[in-house]
């Protein structure tokens, strides 16, 4: 009995750990958003609209980031998660 009990406890995610996971994702996202160029949110929205003309994706399936690659070179990285069969 007690074996089953501890097994159940060990496997159940507590609500605090769910909160922590959500926070980690959110905070990482918001921090990088704060360091992005001003035109990023607008460009991101527009690109999302274009993609959605062809495939139905959720807004967080589109990930965009500007990275500095050494002197005088920045790269805009665009990632779109598009699950097969969607």
């Amino acid at each position: 009995m007690s074996g089953i009990f501890t097994f159940w406890r060990a496997n159940k995610k507590t609500s605090a750990s769910i909160a922590k996971d959500r926070l980690q994702v959110l905070v990482a996202h918001e921090r990088s958003a704060n360091q992005q160029p001003d035109w990023m949110p607008k460009m991101q929205r527009e690109i999302l609209e274009v993609i959605r003309k062809y495939v139905p994706i959720a807004s967080d399936d589109l990930k965009m980031e500007v990275r500095n690659e050494g002197e005088n070179v920045s790269v805009i990285e665009i990632n779109v998660d598009y699950p097969i069969g969607k």
């Binding site: 507590t14 609500s15 605090a16 750990s17 909160a19 922590k20 926070l23 980690q24 905070v27």
Partner: peptide
């Protein structure tokens, strides 16, 4: 409440 998993712990907050 931290021990029962309902509340973020000091460690959780520090990690973030």
């Amino acid at each position: 409440r931290v021990e029962s998993g309902e509340m973020l712990s000091i460690q959780d907050i520090d990690d973030i």
